[in-house]
């Protein structure tokens, strides 16, 4: 489903590579957790997958699409196939919660009737049904994060990329979100999740990829995950 072959990303030649010769293979329907210290390159990895950033060298193939052969005009089509929870949410400030989630459906041409059906159901899943008419500034950090999650899953993508979707959440809500991710994973979506939350890593018992200084330090099932690689405490 996701294939990276010796991918390097250098933002600034003077600062060295953010990612250095990363090779990685993720099977369809897999659930993968990416961990690593702040600045290790986790978000960079995810941004390469959504074509928000381009690799300096190396090959990326996602869902059968070779990124080297992907013309710019088809990038929107690629992005519609991937659901993304951005680390900084990226909600549209001038639109309500409902409209933000609906927007993901609007751009692929879903009918208004269908939107009015689907969006409340998804807001229900993330526990935000009563805040549908709020603007993003009127929400708490955790609530915004949940809007971002609702927006990412509303299109039922084949691949879901979640960049620290639990970063601003208390343990209860964090687990609610993880449960949602596990659920859509059970329905067949490939999930790629980054987190600093050690508890989640340990309890989920999924494949864990550790990135240190832009390189893959380890890649193994959670059961074998040891405490030798330090994971920073969850922020906030």
């Amino acid at each position: 489903m996701i294939l990276l072959d010796r991918v390097t990303k250098t933002y600034n030649k003077n600062l060295g590579a953010a990612l250095n010769r990363i090779s990685l293979h993720v099977e369809p329907k897999e659930f993968v957790i990416v961990v690593g210290q702040s600045g290790a390159g986790k978000s960079t990895l995810l941004k390469l997958l959504t074509r928000e950033e381009r690799p300096t060298s190396g090959k990326i193939i996602v869902g059968g699409i070779d990124y080297d052969k992907l013309p710019d005009k088809d990038i929107p089509l690629l992005r519609r196939k991937i659901g993304v929870v951005f680390q900084d949410f990226k909600l549209l400030p001038n639109r309500t919660v409902f409209e933000n989630v609906a927007f993901a459906l609007e751009i692929v041409g879903v009918s208004t009737k269908e939107i009015n059906n689907t969006v409340p159901r998804v807001l229900e899943i993330v526990n935000l049904k009563d805040k549908a008419k709020r603007m993003p500034v009127e929400l708490s950090g955790g609530e915004r994060q949940r809007v971002a999650i609702a927006r990412a899953i509303v299109r039922q993508p084949k691949i879901l990329i979640a960049d620290e979707p639990t970063g601003n959440l208390d343990p209860k809500h964090a687990w609610d979100v993880i449960n949602v991710l596990e659920k859509i994973n059970r329905y067949g979506t490939t999930v790629l999740l980054t987190t600093h939350n050690q508890d989640i890593v340990n309890k989920l018992k999924r494949r864990v990829i550790t990135i240190t200084n832009g390189e893959i330090a380890s890649d193994r099932a959670s059961a074998q995950y040891t405490e030798k690689t330090p994971i920073p405490r969850e922020r906030m």
Binding site: K73, P76, V84, K90, L92, P93, F103
Partner: peptide, 18 residues
């Protein structure tokens, strides 16, 4: 003033025309 909005739409897969 709305460049962030444009970039977000872009990231969500909206086409240039849209």
């Amino acid at each position: 003033n709305r460049r962030d909005e444009l970039q977000i739409m872009r990231l969500l897969g909206a086409s240039t025309g849209y």
